[in-house]
């Protein structure tokens, strides 16, 4: 690890801090509670908290673009849309706080988590200076080195989204537009407002 100090991109020490650990526990608990609550309103509020925790994690790991999107769309607008949806539907009359647990579903989820979790050991530790993304950075390094000279954008993420991968972004924008049209078709209306 002596060569690590020579690398220009040394991040925090390898390992997990108590702050990260508490964030992960928070996200895990809110995710499980979202599935367990009987009251849909409580589920939606906890789901918003889950998104907020996730956006803090993204920001903490130096992905502010993703964190902003998660906070605005996940915690904000999705919550509003879900609240509107339950205002239009009837709520269950059951007085139980928690839903009964569907054990076959728990079994499938456990198998899935185990399969995905078995690949965890192949990942480098967070901030590991020996990770391939820093030592063998053909693609990442190209963007980080040339994005400013070629596009004049200080934010390399925007340079990738709007210039290098602009065709993908065009497709995504069209998908958003199509979602608006699809909602009109599904709900059988011709206008959004009056």
């Amino acid at each position: 690890m002596i060569g690590a100090s020579a690398s220009p991109l040394v991040l925090q020490s390898v390992g997990i801090t108590p702050f990260e650990l508490s964030l992960f526990v928070f996200v895990l608990i809110t995710a499980v509670l979202t599935a367990l609550f009987t009251d849909v309103l409580a589920s939606i509020v906890i789901f918003a908290a889950y998104s907020l925790g996730l956006s803090i994690i993204y920001t903490f790991y130096h992905a502010p673009d993703v964190g902003l999107t998660e906070a605005a769309i996940g915690a904000g607008i999705t919550t509003v849309f879900l609240l509107l949806t339950i205002a239009k539907t009837s709520r269950p009359t059951s007085d139980d706080r928690f839903d009964s647990i569907n054990w076959p579903a728990v079994g499938i989820c456990t198998v899935f988590v185990l399969v995905v979790g078995s690949t965890l050991s192949a990942f480098p530790a967070v901030g590991d200076p020996g990770s391939p993304i820093l030592t063998n950075a053909d693609v990442t390094g190209y963007y980080l080195q040339t994005a400013y000279d070629e596009t004049g954008a200080e934010n390399a993420v925007t340079a990738v989204l709007a210039a290098y991968r602009g065709f993908d972004t065009f497709g995504e924008a069209i998908v958003v537009f199509a979602a608006g049209i699809a909602s009109l078709l599904v709900l059988g209306r011709e206008v959004f407002t009056t």
Binding site: F81, L84, L187
Partner: peptide, 21 residues
Amino acid sequence: FIVAGVLMGLFFILAAGVTPP
């Protein structure tokens, strides 16, 4: 423009529901 317009539209159409105006 696209995101702002579509999100506003989705909000109002969700609030209106399936019944014709």
